[in-house]
């Protein structure tokens, strides 16, 4: 058994920082994390940045610039294991809404001098650019799941992260279904578990923050939502949020545009 601790790096691409904050948010467990792993490169936590290579890289954010498209190649070269965290890194994030519109038009509206902006026309997940060893879903990710991924990495086992529907988590909590009792639009049946069914537990339909589950039947769900009097543009909007560019949600959104 080696005495040196594995080296961890945390990288940021186009994102809000919420997912990497989840690591700092592990207040009770943070010392244990620091005890088990050498946090060698985590700009949000410390200016003390040690050079690579790294045993484990956590990558947050999507690729939205030519510069980032190159930088991710360097991150991959420096990393033994590369794990993407959050909807931006795994699906392109909310900023992938640009994929459906003309980015130049956005820039002209938002910026006084748009010629200073250098950006790609699309926001794409990390896995579109480099090999990813594991994708941890969520907007934001669940910190317990992040700890599970790090723990699994440390003990050379597969992370116990379920890819089934949010409905299972909802039923485990004993929630009566908001769709069935209140005819509320809910993406739970097509959404990847992980949040613990937060929204339905507070009487709201699922927003789909964790993206498509393992076998998402968006067609059937959308047809039922329309039966519940959800208008087609509203169905499209449901799918066009944090995981708008995830293939199953993109297809569902496009269908109801």
């Amino acid at each position: 058994m080696t005495m040196t601790k594995p080296k961890l790096a945390v990288w940021k691409f186009a994102s809000c920082d919420g997912c990497q904050l989840s690591l700092l948010d592990c207040e009770d467990e943070l010392l244990a994390v620091a005890g088990a792993i050498d946090i060698a490169n985590f700009a949000e936590a410390s200016r003390d940045i040690q050079p690579g290579p790294y045993d484990l890289s956590l990558v947050e954010g999507s690729i939205t610039t030519a510069h980032d498209a190159e930088r991710i190649q360097e991150v991959r070269r420096l990393s033994k294991y590369l794990v993407t965290i959050g909807a931006c890194a795994t699906a392109g994030g909310i900023q992938a809404l640009r994929n459906f519109q003309d980015v130049k038009e956005f820039m002209a509206i938002v910026y006084a001098s748009p010629h200073y902006i250098s950006t790609l026309a699309t926001s794409t997940p990390i896995a579109d650019h480099v090999h990813v060893d594991f994708e941890l879903r969520g907007c934001p990710i669940n910190k317990q799941q992040l700890l599970e991924v790090i723990t699994a990495f440390l003990h050379h086992r597969r992370p116990a992260i379920s890819a089934h529907s949010v409905c299972i988590e909802c039923k485990l909590r004993g929630n009566p279904c908001v769709m069935v009792t209140q005819k509320m639009a809910c993406l739970g049946p097509v959404t990847h578990a992980g949040c613990g069914a937060i929204c339905p537990s507070y009487n709201r339909g699922c927003y789909g923050c964790y993206g498509p589950m393992e076998s998402p039947n968006t067609k059937s769900l959308s047809a039922w939502l329309e039966k519940l009097d959800v208008a087609a543009p509203d169905v499209a909007r449901l799918f066009r949020s944090y995981n708008a560019a995830a293939p199953a949600f993109k297809e569902a959104g496009d269908r109801h545009e």
Partner: peptide, 13 residues
Amino acid sequence: AQRCLSCANCTMV
């Protein structure tokens, strides 16, 4: 299968 969501609600209840 075209209608089933494979969401597992039936098995949970």
